[in-house]
Design a protein around this nucleic acid. Structure first.
Lengths: 337, 337
DNA sequence: CTGAAAGCGCTTACAG
DNA sequence: CTGAAAGCGCTTACAG
């Protein structure tokens, strides 16, 4: 790339100081300079095709108008859906977003945070992986503005926007019970992540409320980086034995997609033999041959709130904001019977 | 955020110049300084928890190690799939990526390019919307390193990595013909974009090769920002009349998803009454109740090559690289019959 | 009021 | 060889 035109070039051409050019171009202290001179400066600027070097400005102002976004995996529709909302909201405020995927890996997440901080992002939106509390604490210590999204650590007093996962799971399971199911299993990730714990808690609470058996054998946990194989095995186990489940709650969209794919190959009828409620919405599920239900997360609201809270805490030290949004239970009719 | 520790802080504490600290921390001119002093400098650096300010470095070195990515819509799995590959490849080379969505809007794309350039990105990967040639030309004039991805302009000599869309469409249609279809329709976007034109051209060429009717009434074009309504209408038209189609080629994944959803509600049997080939892979399609075929784009290769070509042309003025990858025709068996 | 200087935090060419 | 200075492109506090 050839050298770009700078304030100095304009200043020289017009015969004033760079300072004055800066003032004019930023519409500051307008009264400092005659209309005519301001006009002339602007003319030369456009004529020279001047564009301000944000890096230089950032160094001086200590502000990059950049926010860092860390999701689990940008290729996952949940993450990319959020990213899109955040992008739009940020753009409205002249912020730009750098994204990165943590792959649910605490060490990788730490490296990403460092990189983003080195690049002087003004703040962070993070969907933290398990065991990343210490990184969150570090951000607090450094007084870096940030908000957690989708997940959070209940013991830490941080900004966050997440689902009321307990309530959502409760609602989903209660729906199954009201539909007549009596032996409800759950397939979820084996993880310390609070939001996943909450889903289990909601599941359990709903069963208890309706005096249904709560057996640990009814909950199958698979590794969060699991392949479909282990999900298949989990489902198979729940469906066999002398008391096969008559309903399933899937704890995350990846599990639901893999699970429904597997169930499609089995001789069980959905929802007759097996009713299903899943977390998260995926386009994939729309094509599932049978009716089922899922808990829809309000992504637009989640992304928008997270961004606004972040920008607010960037602009002024603001109080901690913690939001749990309600999930919506959607009953899905099949496209083809 | 409190003031960060800078080279100066280290320099003062150790009692040397910032220059020397910089040399040591960057492992340059190692012979300049005694092992002991270097050691001491490093110690103080970690003790003070020093992190280099990339903004300052960038201003000086004129390099940000940042690349700008412009896709149609990061929420679209095609885009986010690419984004993920690009992220990983970039990260391996210490590059960071800023993403933004053009929404197939040429004006928005222009604004995004400006913003990215103001932020001094080292280069761009762009999936250009229709009518954005002039922006691409501008980048050429400014000698900004960039590579186009997924789409490109045949009249412009730029780096690009895309599919051989002509060949892929040809292959797909030929498959339909070999399966016995004789009246093959196509639903695609009404767009000047070259890659979409190529798909039409491939479709037509395959029909011609096999002496099948090529009627303009067989090609239905919908607006690229179309709602499913217009896609439904297009399909309905093709399926009615005195010569209803016995096969359909969908020109893009969004069309396929909406189209298959609609077809699911119709009393036509797939593939008996209507065979289908679609562009792009989507998880959604996996759940479609009947067998069909799709053209799989090699996203990992596409993203990786694009990134490598970009980094190469950032590091040294390199020759123009133009790559058309081959699409793979995947025959999809149903999960449930 | 307004101009010219200082300085953000780095890197590196250059004088000694 | 090595230290201290210049300078990247801005913004803005401050001297006059």
């Amino acid at each position: 790339m050839e050298r770009k035109v700078s304030l100095k070039d304009i200043a020289q051409k017009v015969g004033v100081s760079t300072a004055l050019v800066s003032y004019v171009l930023n519409n500051k202290r307008e009264n400092r300079v005659s209309k005519e001179l301001a006009q002339r400066i602007r003319e030369v600027a456009t004529q020279l095709n001047y564009r301000t070097n944000q890096v230089a400005r950032s160094l001086k102002t200590n502000k990059t108008y950049t926010i860092g976004l860390i999701v689990a995996d940008i290729a996952n529709p949940f993450s990319s859906g959020l990213a899109r909302i955040i992008e739009d909201e940020a753009e409205q405020h002249q912020y730009t977003v750098i994204f990165s995927s943590s792959d649910e890996n605490e060490r990788k997440c730490g490296k990403l945070i460092d990189t983003l901080l080195d690049r002087q992002v003004d703040g962070l939106i993070i969907s933290p992986p398990a065991f990343s509390e210490h990184q969150v604490i570090y951000l607090q210590e450094q007084q870096v503005p940030f908000v957690l999204i989708d997940r959070y650590f209940p013991a830490l007093k941080t900004n966050y926007v997440a689902l009321d996962n307990y309530g959502a799971a409760f609602k989903g399971v209660e729906h199954l019970i009201q539909s007549g199911c009596r032996n409800i299993g759950m397939v979820t990730y084996d993880s310390e992540l609070f939001h996943l714990q909450e889903r289990k808690r909601g599941y359990t609470a709903a069963l208890e409320k309706h005096h249904l058996p709560v057996a640990s054998s009814l909950i199958k946990e698979v590794d969060i980086k699991a392949d479909s194989e282990s999900i298949n095995t989990a489902i198979q186990t729940l469906l066999s034995g002398k008391e096969p489940v008559d309903a399933l709650l899937f704890g995350a969209n990846n599990i639901a997609v893999a699970g429904l794919k597997y169930i499609s190959t089995l001789p069980v009828k959905v929802p007759g033999d097996l009713a299903i409620v899943s977390f998260d919405e995926t386009e994939a599920l729309e094509f599932f041959y049978a009716p089922f239900a899922y808990i829809k997360q309000p992504l637009p609201e989640m992304g928008r709130l997270a961004t606004r809270i972040l920008l607010e805490s960037i602009e002024k030290r603001s109080a901690t904001t913690q939001i749990n949004l309600e999930g919506e239970l959607i009953l899905k009719r099949p496209y083809k019977i």
